[in-house]
Structures are given as C-alpha cells and as structure tokens.
Design a protein around this nucleic acid. Sequence first.
DNA 1: AACACTGACAACCGCAAAGCC
DNA 2: CGGCTTTGCGGTTGTCAGTGT
Length: 369
Amino acid sequence: MGRTACCEKMGLKKGPWTPEEDEKLLAYIHEHGHGSWRALPSKAGLRRCGKSCRLRWANYLRPDIKRGKFSLQEEETIIQLHALLGNRWSAIATHLPKRTDNEIKNYWNTHLKKKLTKMGIDPITHKPKNLVAVDCGQSKEIANISHMAQWESARLEAEARLVLRGAPNPFHSDLSFVNKASAAAPPLPPRPRPPCLDILKVWAWTNPDKDISTMILNGYSPSSWSIINQPTQNTPTSNFSENTVQIQDVGLFNGDSSINAIPNVKGIMGNSMELHYTTTTMNPTSDDYTTSSYTNGDSFLGFPSFVEGFVDVPSSAVQNGYSDGNDNNSNNVVVGGGWGVLDESNVNCWNNVLDFPTCSPPMGSSVLL
DNA sequence: AACACTGACAACCGCAAAGCC
DNA sequence: CGGCTTTGCGGTTGTCAGTGT
C-alpha cells in the first residue's frame, strides 16, 4: 500500500547530480524558467523526477545562494531564531539572506547542536543543562515566554510576507550597530526609525527592577528587552554580581546626541553571567554614529539582538503607561521602566499589521505602546 | 595499503498545505 | 465542495572525503 516514491519510476536516476545534469537543468531554467517541475525533466533531457530537479535547483543551483562557511553572526542568528522558532527552518532561512533552509538545517545538526551541547546548553530548550531541571516554580513565566515566542514567530512570518510582496519592511531592524561594534567597523549609515512593531521587547520589559539573570535563565533572550530608558547620563551603568545583573539608566535621548544600549548576553558560565553592551551614539544633526562596547567578559555564547529596534510611543501610551516622568520630548523614542495598557485601537493596529485574527498578549504581561 | 570510523553535506522521502479544476 | 496535482517543509538517509588504526 502507499504510494511509490516518484523516483522509483522506471529509468529515473537518483543520487548525486553530475555536472552534466546540473548544466542541463541550468540551461533549461535559464531559457524557459521553471514553471512545471513535473514536465521539466523530460523537456530538459534529464532522467530525474521533477521533485529531484526542484530540490537541486532550490538548494544548490539557484544563483542567489551563498555557499561556504557560516559567519559568526549567522551562527548567532540561527541559534537565537531556533530558540524562538524551533525547527522551522524555512522561517529561520527568511532571516538569513542567501542561505537555504536545508543548509541551515544541516549546519544546525552538524555544528551548532554540538557546539551548544559542548557549552552545556541544551540545544532543544536553549537553557543551561544544569538548570533545566530546576524550575523553582517559574513555569508561569515560561508559559509567557512561550506565548511571546508565538507572537514573535507570527511577526517573523508577517515580515516574510511583506518581503514577498516587495513592500518596505517596517520590521526591519539594522543590527549592524550592535554586531559590528566590537570590530573596527566603518561609520554606520543613518537608520530610519521603524514604527511601533516590537511586541516582544515591550512585553519583556515590564518591570525595571526585574532580576535579569532570572529572566534569562527562564528563557528570555536578553536582546528582547533592549532597554531604552529616559537617560540621565551618557554611559550605561550596570551592577554585576554572581547571579544578578541590574541595568539602569541606559538612555536614548541626551541633548544633541542619543544613546541606545542593547544588553547582549555573551555567556553563562556556571553561576556567573557575562554581559556585553554595545552602545551607539547618534547625532541627529549630522547623522553620525559612533559605537563603543562594554563587556565584563569575553566568553562566547551569542545572542544576536535581532529583536532590537526602537519603539515609537503614541502619546496615549505615554499618558497611560510611561512612568518615567521625564519625557519632555514628544518625538523621543522612549520605552521602558513603565507599565502600559494595550487599548483596543492599538490591538487592532497591531493585528492589522501582523495579519492576525484575534490574539492577546501573554497573561500577566503589561504592554506599553 | 586496506579497512573502519567520522563528519559534512547533498539528496531523498513522506506528509501537509496550497492551488487548480 | 471534493478530488487531484503541485509545491513546501522537515526528518532522515546516502554519499564521500578525511582521518585514524
């Protein structure tokens, strides 16, 4: 019973492709495109099934594929996206330009899984292995994280849809100022401010006094809550201790310049945690960017800040939820430290953007818009 | 030199969703 | 609406090169 595999039909070849076969396939697609994969092999003079041709094209011959070693940044992105999306390779691939889902999947299985395991990180849960068994009654928060991840997942899908439509991508967040900061990168180009779309970040930062290490150990990606707080000083200050990290006074607006600091966990070693900050100082008059890095360690566990990005705050939200009390600039891009209310119009706004039917934020989370 | 083992990656398989009639 | 075909996806297997014995 069951259907026979397409390649089991008489005379159809299986196995590795020869250069001659590649050439035939490429020549045919170059001339005729790839309308019907089923009819393609015979037309192209190939003794392969259409499915095999499609895979060969999609995973190997397509001209827009980058081959070769994955960069550190790509690795970091895969790890974090996998933490959010699981084995949804195609969704992950939409965030890695020129990489195929198959390639990412293979790379995960052969490299990254082992790498995380070696570091004592469970590649399935993305938590330190010695902490997986210790719940400490925090399952509610974990459930929230899971819910947030679903929203983030939906956001990623919405983003992919927009890309397919060729529309400008309002979700786009340029990570370069974070990830390139430690290298001697050239000055960064001016970055347009995206609209209010960063759900995850806003939910995550609901309590300024939250013990961040606890949140991380519960599965939060620290990059999810880039803290954009009303500044009181130029330099972010942090208190480091064995198990607790508090971040405060990381500011965005500061007179003629702005500072955005993204906490980025670099490693969790035993009971200690190491943080890496990158700050970007923006001069609104000249569009100059300067970056500098702060770190209290250098061991590696990458968590790219792909969720970074600013959040525009509607005035109603500022009235409702912003508790800083120092927002004397209505155009300021400020979020954090306060508690917000997601009113109905904002829900509709976000749902429209995300193509959602109806959805609710995680239980117990406050949403500041 | 021959064989076994291992890692990396290409390719296949089967299922499900999407599209079409 | 239902059935058939096509396409997309994720898990798994196959192949091959490199390395060790």
